[in-house]
Design a protein around this nucleic acid. Structure first.
Length: 469
RNA sequence: GCGGCUAUAGUUCAGUGGCAGAACGCCGCUCUGUGGCAGCGGAUGUCGUGGGUUCGAAACCCACUAGCCGCCCCA
């Protein structure tokens, strides 16, 4: 019988790699909290029409990359409904915004999400058919300030902070303004007109784009077409005063925050709903991403809510390719120190008679309440009484910095014999002394090269154990 | 969706038509209350799947599947 495998373009994430995913997600959640974002979870599938109207019927995503199926009717009187696995999450968030009348609160909505998306593309490193995005949206009625360039800059600054905090090196922010919902069609028309007499001199791909989506000609990499592309009309010349001023204010706020960027007048995005500010964060070679070097992208979508039949609700958002972020982190840094030793202590019962005693000690240590960190217990692994002591040592040495030897003598005296692998030092102690010892030697507080402050004191340690206190 | 490269042990890979291999890792013993070292021994496996050529195929041919690289697209 043939063995079953994960389907093309999908993959299993296993430990210890999942620990890195959790680290990234915990960092993002903590960041979003500081900037006032709340989590939204929308369904993984939606009505096909949502994406057709939101993302755009003519885009590659909608026209050839969606997983779509007819959901059968439940009764003869009911029509079958076309459903689609979400290829992105912004349309779903805006749909939820409209459906739950979030605009009626009058306030600015700051929402973040985190979850799998689906596109039927040819798989490659950094490009999967089920991939993960971490994204956020800021939207609301105009009166909430949702249209303000300050929101654009705030989002961009937040992203720069996140990449820095995670330790991504060599990122670049490129941004552009594609104009308002009236500027953009005017520009596309002008582009079409300018392309008509010259497109026959361009490569096949660009000839096709000139017909289907002229904006995409702008970010063509075909070297032979570059002169022609540079001669095309510039979007900047088609912005109305309001859009131009909006963009200048975004740039001024970024300057004030010290976020470096490059204005790229040829940066366009593949989704139809973008207006005004569009942006992309990329990483250079050596990121492990090859040509899939866009880590995240986003922009403003002032007309999306109305396109979906909702109220006027300008907004700006982004989506981070979490898979690509992880690949970059793995290529740029060693996370071995974070993940090697899972446990604070390894318990080695000597003889199967000590198994029950070892497990009850593990229970005690694992559930011990630690008032200082306001967290429960220690990370404990238990061996097996039939292991020879030598084997216990070999296993323990890979998992924990110390081993507790639990033999007949120790159990009789209610003591624990503890040995440190590093110095070879060995001593006998009570349960209470062991807790005190582990509290002082908590290896989760000693990850090299990571220092955090809690506002008052500088603390060495990992996010998940420190931020809670 | 297009073009190219690749697929052999847990991992990294060697093996160009004649016994399926190396290193690391793993297991056991030396060694049943003290690890890292060493010595000895062991198992690694439908050689991606299916078909073809051949006396004989891991190798050559075809198809398929999957991964990777580039394009396309995008996160």
């Amino acid at each position: 019988m043939s063995t079953l495998k994960a389907v093309r373009g999908t993959r299993d994430l296993l430990p210890p790699e999942t620990q890195l995913w959790n680290h990234v997600e915990a960092s993002a959640r903590a960041l979003f909290a500081r900037y006032g974002f709340g989590e939204i979870r929308t369904p993984v599938f939606e009505a096909t029409e949502l994406f057709a109207r939101g993302v755009g019927e003519e885009t590659d995503i909608v026209s050839k990359e969606m997983y779509t199926w007819e959901d059968r009717a439940r009764a003869a009187s009911e029509k079958a409904q076309s459903l689609t696995l979400r290829p992105e999450n912004t349309a779903g968030v805006v749909r939820a915004y409209i459906e739950h009348k979030l605009g009626e609160t009058g306030g600015l909505q700051k929402l973040f999400y985190l979850g799998p998306q689906f596109r039927r593309e040819r798989p490659q490193r950094g490009r999967y058919r089920q991939f993960w995005q971490i994204g956020a949206e800021v939207l609301g009625p105009v009166s909430s300030g949702s249209e303000s360039p300050l929101r654009d800059a705030e989002v961009l600054e937040m992203l720069a902070s996140l990449l820095d905090e995670l330790g991504i090196r060599g990122w670049r922010l490129e941004l552009n303004s594609v104009g308002s919902s009236t500027d953009r069609p005017r520009y596309v028309a002008a582009l079409r007109e300018a392309l008509t007499p010259i497109k026959h001199r361009m490569c096949e791909d660009n000839q096709r784009r000139a017909e289907t989506n002229p904006l995409r000609v702008l970010d063509s990499k075909a070297p032979e077409d570059q002169d022609l592309i540079n001669s095309l009309p510039k979007i900047a010349d088609f912005l109305d005063d309001a859009s131009r001023d909006h963009f200048q204010q975004v740039l001024a706020a970024l300057d004030a925050c010290g976020v470096s960027y490059t204005v790229n007048p040829r940066l366009v995005r593949g989704l139809d709903y973008y207006t005004r500010t569009t942006f992309e964060f990329t990483v250079a070679d050596g990121s492990g991403l090859g040509t899939q070097n866009a880590l995240l992208g986003g922009g403003r979508y002032d007309g999306l809510s109305e396109m979906l039949g909702g109220p006027k609700a300008p907004g700006i958002g982004f989506a981070i390719g979490e898979d690509r972020l992880i690949l970059t982190l793995q290529a740029q840094a060693s996370y071995d120190a974070l993940f090697r030793r899972h446990f604070d202590i390894y318990l080695a019962p000597l003889g199967k008679e000590q198994n029950a005693y070892a497990l009850s000690l593990a229970q005690y240590l694992r559930n011990f309440w630690r008032p200082v960190l306001r967290t429960k217990g220690f990370h404990v692994e238990v061996g097996e009484g039939n292991f020879r002591l030598k084997k216990s040592f070999e296993v323990a040495e890979k998992l924990a910095p110390v081993i507790a030897i639990l033999g007949e003598e120790e159990r009789a005296a209610n003591l624990i014999k503890l040995k440190e692998f590093a110095g070879g030092e060995q001593r006998v102690m009570t349960k209470e002394e062991l807790v005190r010892y582990l509290s002082q030697n908590d290896p989760t507080l000693k990850v090299p090269g990571e220092t955090y402050t809690d506002g008052m004191h500088e603390v060495s340690g990992r996010h998940d154990s420190v931020n809670k206190s």
